[in-house]
Write a protein that binds this DNA or RNA. Structure first.
Length: 892
RNA sequence: GCGGACGUGGCGAAACUGGUAGACGCAAGGGACUUAAAAUCCCUCGGAGCGAUCCAUGCGGGUUCGAUCCCCGCCGUCCGCACCA
């Protein structure tokens, strides 16, 4: 028997809420979190009977507290993890901490604490915050990269890479802060000044460790095509970053030399060998060995080279920098004409890192070369004529021509198209010899440079190397690993604490036993995050970083989720590491992440008071009248200006603390809101109204589940032999909506999955209106299926509410351990279909027809339709297009 | 400068990538219940028109029976790279 008043009455909706107590997330959420923990629900075991699924969200830096960006990221990952688990996969969903890095040292300097203390305290806070979100994580696999149990393996890996020839030690320029005595990253240099000390940053040459990522340039580029479940945008960014270009290296013979320059030739790289007859000069990078050689005997040139070294590396500095050069006095011979010589300049715009560090300048067809040529009066010769120009009159003045055209002024190349001319030059120059070698060779050049990993910092993984005066660079013996960080460090002195620690660096040489010193540089923290996904597969293994069999089973990560800001470096380094680990026997695959998803940011309105200071959302209240919204300070009531919507940041104070939200509304509401409304790869605007909407929905579902629980057949009730039309209708909507939810989650379209769930619950609420006091068994069965289906549908997003509902519906075990219902495709598709009828592409009516109905009958029905008749105005239809199940269009 | 993405109601968006444009939600307005409020429920909600209907997916063209979707040309916003030879 049904208590009528528990359902929504036609005109008075108050009963439902009166008899249904409100859902209280503050009680339910911790309760279910404890139950999951006690039952070990999310502990992953190796189980090959089920297909594996590895979901991973980019692990956080333990900065202190989680922010809304984390909430969004981990809510998405958790939907995937919970959904896949329900679908029968053995899911690996771990969490860890990217725990090394500069902020810990900064905090240590400021607060006189130890970086380790600070870091582990933050981890404790953030772990408990993440736990309050109810994430289905296997916490038994937690790792922190600052644990020696983690970085021990990283040191070993470094030594293995060294042995395998994947590590190199070489000189490199760094941004040096002379006050703090430290190396700065490019983003720490602002307008040529150090971000912290404000000192003028200088370029300094240091010997540093490099990982030879360029060994894999080609593979890293080519394999991008295999990453089908990566965003096109990220693949493109990586492609551009690797920067492949086809060209030639061409050697020019030195024709006239100053006495101190012994070189007989200069090699340049070019992608435009076709323009060789337009050459006007050779330009060397100031860092080119030949430039330095020439400078040694020429004080003015030496001054010029030194001046170039001061040139800023910032984007702004480069943009405004004028082209400058210095004539070395050297001249080289043109490869196609022994009587033609070209001057050799040192020029500030030539990069040492790219190509050979030397170019030939063709002013007519390269803007940089033209700018340079115009300053130094070197002239230009157009050698490619645009299709719309007359070769006899075509001249270049201020704008170089880099489009397609036909070769002119180029002797044997005249009349050729660019591609043919390139081929011809290559053919001739590879067949001509200079000093016993071909003058030129075809090459492929990459923009990608080797990865410098040395950091002059304390809070990072020590590089396991010993420097001995007699033996040179000696790898630390494997049995001495881990090389741990000393804990008694002094941050009051400038510079690297490892370097001026009294004892730490002094060791005996493992080779000869003589006193030697440890490498005091630590590794770039990007190294730590380049293999953590592999460590998660067997995080407590002591003997090695990975067990290859286990790593190969779990990897690649099936779905990786994180911010677009890691599109290039982290993801590229991880791809490189996977290849390097394969080469050194740690695992056997190339690509670590089969599927990648980059989520958008969380943004919020900004608020500014009369004094122009930022105000936090917690300090204001919003008043809305009609369409207008105004904000007022809670303290003084003064009006606050509502500013633009921007990424949540501490500096603009437009942050909302996840703890506050979870405390007020519960984790489910926060998670639900984060996934609603905006497509996951786009930014989401955090708004109080939106959160309240999500919170209302939590209560609505709870009431609905209560109503359904009252009328549903018992758990496990078998399907009645025959079903009434109304029972079938309920089953249809359950199966149809569940199918849509599945498809949307699988495509990571969480916003549309949520819209579908809301449609589902709206339909159920509507359908309950027609329920009378006596419920037939077949209808009760259909409502049982609907109620269970709804609880399951919300479970990936709102797991606590789902558990509470599942319990209320009478299930003995948790929903987290339950299986996703099997959708019956016959029930998911309606037999009747509503077909719009158009006349000349404009809708004139609708036909409700059986999905199976033949086209001829549909056509007949359409033509008889009143709206069609009216629109035809007596004209005869010229053509009728029937798209079965979709649309009818009558062409008049 | 080079490369890429996006532009749909007051707002976030949806549209099975050629087939009823605006699902789902937020905000707003009206109403019911209440002494009142909260909560809940009902109705309206792109524009014009009493209506049949007409207009509308940044703007202008094109292809098509039919275009938010494909093509061409503009305008605007955002992102990546940037003296890469």
């Amino acid at each position: 028997m049904l208590p009528r008043r528990s359902l929504r009455p036609a005109s008075n909706g108050s009963f439902s809420s009166m008899i249904n107590e409100r859902y209280n997330p503050r009680e339910a959420e911790p309760k279910w979190q404890r139950i999951w923990e006690t039952r070990g629900t999310f502990v992953t075991r190796n189980d090959t009977s089920r297909p594996k699924y590895y979901v991973l969200e980019m692990f956080p830096y333990p900065s202190g507290r989680i922010h809304m960006g984390h909430v969004r990221n981990y809510a998405m990952g958790d939907v995937v993890a919970r959904y896949r688990r329900a679908k029968g996969f053995n899911v690996l969903h771990p969490m860890g901490w990217d725990a090394f890095g500069l902020p810990a040292e900064n905090a240590a300097r400021q607060n006189k604490t130890n970086p380790a203390t600070w870091t582990y305290a933050n981890i404790a806070t953030m772990r408990s915050q993440l736990k309050s979100m109810g994430l289905s994580l296997d916490w038994s696999r937690e790792i922190a990269t600052c644990d020696s149990s983690y970085y021990k393996h990283q040191q070993r890996m470094f030594l293995d890479f060294l042995k395998a020839g994947l590590v190199e030690r070489k000189q490199s320029k760094v941004n040096w802060d002379p006050v703090d005595q430290t190396v700065l990253a490019n983003e720490q240099v602002i307008d040529g000044k150090a971000w912290r000390s404000g000192a003028t940053v200088v370029q300094r040459e240091l010997t540093q460790w490099f990982l030879k990522i360029t060994d894999f340039s080609k593979d890293l580029l080519d394999s991008l095509d295999t990453l089908e479940r990566w965003p096109e945008k990220v693949r493109l960014m990586q492609k551009n970053w690797i920067g492949r270009s086809e060209g030639m290296k061409v050697r020019f013979e030195v024709a006239a030399s100053n006495s101190n320059v012994a070189t007989k030739e200069i090699e340049v790289f070019t992608t435009r060998p076709d323009t060789l007859f337009g050459a006007r000069f050779i330009a060397l990078s100031p860092d080119h060995p030949l430039a330095k050689q020439a400078a040694a005997g020429n004080a003015a040139l030496a001054d010029f080279v030194a001046e170039c070294a001061k040139q800023g590396t910032s984007a702004a500095a480069i943009e405004t920098a004028e082209k400058k050069g210095f004539d070395t006095g050297l001249r080289v011979t043109h490869p196609f004409d022994p009587d033609w010589t070209l001057p050799v300049y040192v020029a500030n715009f030539v990069l040492i890192e790219y190509g050979t560090g030397a170019i030939f300048g063709c002013p007519a067809h390269d803007q940089r070369d033209l700018d340079f040529s115009n300053i130094y009066g070197l002239g230009n010769t157009p050698v490619v004529c645009p299709p719309d120009q007359d070769p006899a009159t075509f001249v270049v003045d201020k704008t170089a021509f880099d489009g397609d055209g036909v070769l002119i002024n180029s002797r044997f190349l005249d009349g050729m198209r660019i591609e043919a001319a390139k081929e011809e030059v290559a053919r001739r120059l590879t067949a001509t010899e200079l000093f016993g070698r071909p003058v030129a060779e075809r090459t492929v050049n990459y923009r990608l440079r080797d990865w410098g990993i040395s950091r002059q910092r304390y809070w990072g993984c020590p590089i396991p190397i010993i420097h001995c005066e007699a033996c040179g660079v000696v790898p630390a013996p494997a049995d001495q690993l881990p090389i741990t960080l000393p804990t008694d460090v002094d941050f009051s002195v400038t510079g690297n604490p490892l370097d001026h620690h009294p004892t730490w660096k002094h060791v005996e040489c493992p080779n000869c036993g003589k006193p030697s010193v440890r490498e005091t540089d630590t590794m770039d923290t990007f190294v730590d995050s380049s293999w953590y996904f592999a460590r998660f597969t067997d995080p407590t293994l002591e003997s090695a970083a990975t067990d290859p069999a286990i790593a190969n089973h779990w990897l690649p990560v099936d779905q990786y989720i994180g911010g677009i800001e890691h599109a290039i470096l982290h993801l590229l380094y991880s791809r490189f590491f996977t290849r390097a680990m394969e080469k050194t026997g740690y695992l056997n695959l190339k690509e670590p992440f089969a599927g990648l998803f980059t989520q958008g940011m969380v943004v919020h309105e900004t608020y500014k008071n009369n004094d122009g200071d930022w105000v936090t959302p917690a300090e204001i209240r919003i008043e809305a009248s009609g369409e207008k919204r105004r904000a007022f300070g809670l303290n003084d009531g003064a009006e606050v200006e509502i500013g633009p919507i921007e990424k949540m940041s501490k500096s603009k104070k437009n942050v909302v603390d996840p703890d506050d939200i979870i405390g007020t509304y519960g984790a489910d509401t926060a998670r639900w809101f984060m996934l609603s409304d905006s497509p996951p790869d786009r930014d989401i605007i955090w708004s109080d109204e939106g959160v309240q909407g999500a919170s209302r929905y939590v209560q609505q579902v709870w009431r609905l589940i209560g109503d359904l629980a009252a009328i549903a057949a018992p758990v496990g009730a078998s399907e009645p032999t025959s079903l009434s039309d109304s029972a079938v209708a309920i089953r249809r909507l359950t199966h149809r909506h569940l199918q849509q939810v599945e498809q949307n989650i699988e495509r990571l379209r969480f916003n549309t999955a949520i819209a579908e769930i809301r449609k589902f619950s709206n339909s159920l609420i509507d359908s309950l209106d027609s329920v009378t006091e006596s419920i037939a068994p077949d209808v009760a069965f259909a409502y049982r299926e609907a109620a269970d289906g709804l609880a399951m549908a919300i479970s990936p997003m709102m797991p606590h509410l789902a558990e509470e509902s599942w319990e209320r519906l009478g299930h003995p075990i948790t929903i987290a351990e339950a299986e996703w219902p099997v959708v019956d495709p016959r029930l998911a598709t309606d037999t009747m279909v509503l077909m719009p009828v158009q006349v000349n592409g404009k809708k004139r009516g609708e036909l409700s027809v059986d999905r199976q109905l033949d086209a001829a009958t549909i056509e007949k029905l359409a033509l008889e339709h009143e709206g069609v008749q009216r629109a035809l105005e007596g004209r005869a239809p010229r053509k009728v297009i029937v798209v079965p199940g979709r649309i009818v269009n009558v062409v008049a």
